[in-house]
């Protein structure tokens, strides 16, 4: 089973949480927005939100400047 993270395939595991993706992919940006199948997952839910099989995940870096 796989999920797609920013267009790249990644192995899915039962019980996988948003935080696991961030750890496995080694995302180090402090400010991120995560969307799972188009739905925003708030930072407060990153440790509890379960990633469904075949999920489409977007990890968006937020960078200062404007």
């Amino acid at each position: 089973m796989n999920i797609m993270v920013n267009g790249e395939s990644m192995a899915w595991q039962p019980g996988m949480k948003v935080r696991d993706i961030l750890n496995i992919r080694n995302y180090t940006f402090k400010m991120l927005v995560i969307k799972v199948n188009g739905t925003l997952v708030k930072r407060a839910q990153w440790d509890s939100y379960r990633i469904p099989e075949h999920a489409e995940v977007s990890v968006i870096h937020l960078i200062s400047g404007g």
């Binding site: 402090k30 400010m31 991120l32 927005v33 925003l40 708030k42 930072r43 937020l62 960078i63 200062s64 400047g65 404007g66």
Partner: peptide, 13 residues
């Protein structure tokens, strides 16, 4: 159209 990443995240959420 904010400056800081923190405020961008707050607005999106």
């Amino acid at each position: 159209a904010f400056d800081t990443a923190e405020s961008k995240e707050m607005l999106i959420e």
